[in-house]
Design a protein around this nucleic acid. Structure first.
Length: 594
RNA sequence: GCCGAUGUAGCUCAGCUGGUUAGAGCGAGGGAUUCAUAAGCCCUAGGUCGGCGGUUCGAAUCCGCCCAUCGGCACCA
């Protein structure tokens, strides 16, 4: 069993079903996870961000058959599409796992074998409503909704049964209750956790984990007539990607040859032998358990109950937290294929084309359904948020500070002449040395920045991206307010007035330093633009020397990791004399009425 | 049907264990300015805090009922 590292963090998205086309839901989950991963790296933590594709199951098999290609060919095609699409969102995943890769298949079989060996699996009979045309089972409630008729063919559903292997979930009722009681923050938001607890009180039943009515899946070890049911296969990706089951697979002698027919395992990894698997484990297994499983609310039960129970059965550590977000709706309407109102890829591309990638990430991360309520996606709202927060606040604040340093300080970082006495923005309501008082008495910028950083860190820890972003924006609001109050542009009217010019330099020094700190906090959200800002504001204060950027580097790329966060986010790191340039970050966009 | 949640200014929402004139952001209207991306700043919006009843010296904040909206209810990624 791996032992986790305190200085490491592992964050995952669900793996996406290759039978789907990428849409806003995939974009959302992946982007918010990416923001968190970047923030984690920024803080100097060794961070692993995993996403991927789920490629087995009856639906994939059926779609492939309909197109006259193999399931693997379909999976290859769509997995490539997912990778391409996610790439366009600036995602910094450290790996992209595919469930048809041998490394995954071998470990899944090893885990199932271990589950069976530990008495967590039994053979039973599954009964359900079967659609003979679709070769699919429906749940009791779904069948009832359909009037016990096939939604496709209209024929009556039949009561069918098949022998399946079951995971003895019912055995984990007590252990799960104890775990939840001891970990009240396990599932967030809280409302979702309550839902899980409520359902748990109704009691747990064993769940089937194999199927025999289709072939496109991982053969169940010991009984080749069965394939592993897709969601068991899928859940295990979180540990197989990290090589957690490598030792088990090797010791059980499970070889790649047991992979299903037609599985050629394209894509990134092609680990197939014991040594490769062992290497995978050596490099990654200490990342487990995951710090965050980021998921949509529709798959909460699997992640909050079945997955922990499986891990308990395998005697593996449980993930620390599960964040289940809600759904985007479009203009007040649920998105659905029949409504034709899905925010699809072409729509997303249009937004990114018009507003830029960072703006898209910003809207996703700050206006999305992060908590229990669904969020409405509206074009007008997108435009308003872009203009109000990115153009008018972030962009404009950086612009006016950069412009004044250019005009009044020769484009170099000015000296704060009060350093040594007080780097504040007015110690108390009276202000300092004739300088107008700030709007609050707590405006010592060192303290102010430190508080913002602390708020940001705590918010990130809780996956409260909105609060984290606001901590940075508030810093910029304070800078704006400070400029308005101290009016350096008036003090600078007479350049020969040395005393006033000294004040101007002090004021602008404070503003410049603070804007830079805010920029660091915004980096995970706005990687391109905040990198641009960092370059304009003194170059590279404490970021990655190797790549010459403060952008958060990927930990997996040798020699390129985030710098010392304490220094990076500290007020005052821009050295006096450093070049400061005015920079235009977010262009104003005229919204054409549609 | 069962379980749970929500209902606060035009919009999105804060308001912990009840207590001075109910808040923020955005939008809208007005004002003073000009360093800045016609941005920033200041003032304003008089909203029965879903409805009714109760507890209390006192409730948006506790209890009950009602209305409305929403979520979960297991094999769906």
């Amino acid at each position: 069993m791996p032992s986790s590292r305190a200085d490491a963090a592992f964050i995952t998205t669900p793996i996406y079903y290759v039978n789907d086309r990428p849409h806003i839901g995939h974009a959302y989950t992946t982007i918010i996870s990416d923001v968190w991963a970047r923030a984690s790296r920024l803080q100097g933590r060794s961070t692993f961000f995993l996403t991927g594709t789920d490629e087995h199951g009856a639906k994939v098999e059926k779609s492939a058959t309909a197109r006259g290609i193999t399931p693997q060919a379909l999976a290859d095609e769509n997995a490539a599409e997912f990778q391409r699409v996610l790439g366009t969102f600036g995602i910094t995943c450290d790996d992209f796992i595919r469930t048809t890769q041998p490394r995954h298949i071998r470990q899944v079989q090893a885990f199932l074998k271990a589950l069976a060996a530990r008495g967590a699996v039994t053979l039973g009979t599954f009964q359900g409503w079967y659609d003979e045309g679709q070769e699919e089972y429906y749940t009791e409630t779904r069948a009832k909704d359909l009037g016990y008729k096939s939604p496709i063919s209209g024929r009556d559903l039949v009561r069918a049964s098949e022998d399946n292997y079951y995971f003895r979930l019912s055995q984990f009722q007590k252990p799960l209750e104890a775990f939840f009681a001891a970990n009240p923050g396990f599932v967030q938001p809280q409302g979702r956790f309550n839902e899980v607890l409520g359902r748990l009180r109704d009691g747990l039943q064993d769940v089937p984990i194999t199927r025999t009515n289709f072939a496109w899946g991982i053969p169940f070890p010991g009984d080749g007539r069965h394939v592993v049911y897709v969601w068991i296969d899928a859940l295990l990706n979180y540990v197989t990607a990290m090589g957690v089951g490598a030792e088990l697979a090797n010791s059980l002698g499970i070889a790649e040859s047991t992979a299903p027919e037609g599985s050629t395992a394209g894509g990134t990894g092609h680990e197939s032998d014991d040594a490769t698997l062992a290497a995978l484990a050596a490099a990654r297994s200490t990342y487990w358990p995951a710090q965050y499983h980021v998921i949509g609310k529709e798959i909460l039960w699997f992640h909050a109950v079945i997955w922990p129970a499986m891990l308990m059965a395998l005697e593996l550590p449980l993930p620390r937290r599960i964040h289940a977000h809600s759904f985007w709706i479009a203009d007040g309407q649920k998105m659905s294929k029949s409504m034709g109102n899905f925010i699809d890829l072409p729509t997303i591309d249009r937004y990114i084309g018009t507003y830029g990638l960072d703006a898209w990430r910003w809207y996703m991360a700050t206006q999305g359904p992060l908590q229990a309520a669904d969020a409405d996606f509206r074009a007008a709202h997108f435009h308003e948020m872009y203009t109000a927060e990115l153009v008018n606040l972030v962009g404009n604040c950086a612009s006016r500070v950069g412009a004044m340093v250019g005009k009044y300080c020769g484009g170099t970082m000015p000296m704060d002449s009060r350093v040594g006495r007080s780097v504040d923005a007015g110690a108390g309501a009276a202000g300092v040395a004739g300088m107008p008082a700030p709007r609050d008495a707590i405006q010592c910028w060192v303290v102010r920045c430190g508080a913002a950083v602390a708020t940001w860190r705590e918010a990130m820890e809780d996956f409260d991206l909105v609060l984290a972003a606001r901590a940075a924006l508030d810093l910029l609001r304070d800078v704006d307010a400070y400029i308005n109050r101290t009016e350096p542009f008036k003090l600078a009217k007479d350049p020969s007035n040395a005393e006033n010019m000294s004040k101007v330099h002090s004021i602008l020094a404070q503003c410049t330093q603070t804007v830079r700190v805010a920029g660091v906090l915004l980096l995970p959200f706005l990687p391109e633009k905040m990198d641009q800002l960092a370059q304009a504001f003194g170059g590279v204060p404490a970021g990655c020397a190797a790549c010459g950027s403060v952008s958060i580097a990927r930990v997996t790329e040798a020699g390129c990791s985030a710098g010392d966060f304490a220094a990076l986010a500290r007020y005052g790191e821009i050295p006096v004399g450093a070049a400061i340039a005015k920079t235009a970050l977010f262009p104003r966009i005229e919204r054409k009425e549609s």
